[in-house]
Amino acid sequence: MAELRVRVNGADHLLDIPPQVSLLDALREHLGLTGTKKGCDQGACGACTVLADGERINACLALAVQYADREITTIEGIDHPIQEAFVRHDGFQCGYCTSGQICSAIGMLAEHKDGMPSAVTGEPSAEGEELTDEEIRERMSGNLCRCGAYHGIVEAIGEVAR
């Protein structure tokens, strides 16, 4: 077993875990950071979305050992106006996908700012693309919400983005 140093929400942690432990299990079971959720454990739902150096990833398919030198941010380390917007726009019901939706939205806003296109973005343009609701929906499609709170989530993100 290897001693693994991971940096989560600005703090360093030493973990004694074998390489098959995912970043998700490392967070939830070894660091007690249960805000990041396990919905499928196979990259098909987005509930485990966290930020690695500000980029959104699925923690379930990330081996913790592969992300040892990255700065990981989970919902517990986030303080962002989008959280309050989710509450106001009722962008959740059961709350299980919510951490992932919020982390994903923050990563998405940064991607958009950096000029990352999406499947619904047209030709490259000098001014950059407007973050329309259609863009938000496509860019957030990696985060399932079975309660169907999509309407409120898109409203919440749109409000923060514009």
């Binding site: 989970t74 959280q83 309050e84």
Partner: peptide
């Protein structure tokens, strides 16, 4: 329960 659900709490 909005604050609990949006902060991971």
């Amino acid at each position: 329960d909005g604050p609990a659900k949006t902060t991971g709490g």
